[in-house]
């Protein structure tokens, strides 16, 4: 539908191994570790949430205290990989890239709104506009989930906010987070080269030029291997 994956593009992982010369660095080891740790924590948090919340699963699994403990800790630890990632210059540089919009990002959004999926109509830097908005949204959502979760965990922390209100926001936002994450994973599923980039750190330059046309430009010309910052 709104796929940005290059289906016409011969990107086979078998013919282009990750260590093949010519592939360009997209994510440093630190960034990949941050992403992997956050992903696993998020998965753990969502799976335990399902076992606490969905009746049939709750009946199947039981062990409420154990499941709740895993849920609480995976939730509060969720921001930790990103905080540790701040020690990495490459991660900090990418946070800046994610944060700031450029003119072509608005063009990307307009194309997305009109459901135009061709890469030419959707120029992007290292991160496209969708990824930028996703990053900001999920960061905010995780913080709200953590705050309302802590209110449920430590009752009476803020007597002004009723536990029922905290639970209501936590439950509603949980569904939104689940839907958005399904979208995130669908996008990754549709684009093997993007997944390869996150797994090995390196991507095919042709893919980069096609889907992130402004990235190499803004980093000072193609083929230049950047290690970050």
């Amino acid at each position: 539908m709104t796929s940005t994956a290059g289906s016409r593009e011969p990107t086979g992982a078998a013919t282009r191994g990750p260590e093949r010369p010519g592939r360009i660095l997209r994510f440093s080891r630190a960034e990949r570790l941050v992403h992997r740790a956050t992903g696993w924590l998020m998965l753990l948090c969502l799976l335990t949430a399902a076992c606490l919340y969905l009746g049939p699963l709750a009946q199947l699994v039981g062990r409420r205290h154990l499941v709740a403990t895993v849920h609480e800790w995976s939730g509060v630890l969720l921001p930790l990989p990103s905080l540790l990632g701040l020690l990495s210059p490459a991660f900090r540089a990418d946070l800046r890239r994610l944060n700031r919009f450029a003119g072509y990002d608005r063009q990307w959004l307009r194309a997305a709104r009109r459901r135009v999926a061709t890469p030419d109509a959707r120029p992007a830097g290292k991160f496209n506009a969708g990824q930028k908005i996703y990053a900001g949204w999920i960061a905010g959502a995780v913080l709200v989930m953590m705050f309302t979760g802590l209110l449920m965990w430590f009752t009476g922390l803020l007597p002004l906010i009723s536990r029922t209100s905290a639970i209501f926001v936590h439950d509603c936002l949980a569904w939104a987070v689940a839907l958005v994450l399904i979208g995130h994973m669908r996008k990754a599923y549709e684009d093997p080269e993007a997944r390869l980039g996150m797994r090995t750190g390196r991507v095919d330059p042709a893919w980069a030029v096609r889907h992130h046309s402004e990235w190499l430009e803004e980093d000072g010309g193609p083929r230049r291997r950047r290690t970050g910052g």
Binding site: R96, R97, L98, N99, R100, F101, A102, G103, D105, G125, A129, K132, I133, A135, G136, W137, A139, G140, A141, L143, V144, F147, T148, I161, S162, T164, S165, A166, F168, V169, C172, L173, E218
Partner: peptide, 26 residues
């Protein structure tokens, strides 16, 4: 580098505001 508006940060802050509004209006 892109140096336009900090859209991601605004999205995040907007989300926090929505959370606060949600709690108030719950």
């Amino acid at each position: 580098r892109p140096d336009g508006a900090p859209v991601a940060r605004r999205t995040m802050l907007g989300m926090l505001a929505a959370g606060a509004a949600g709690l108030a209006g719950a």
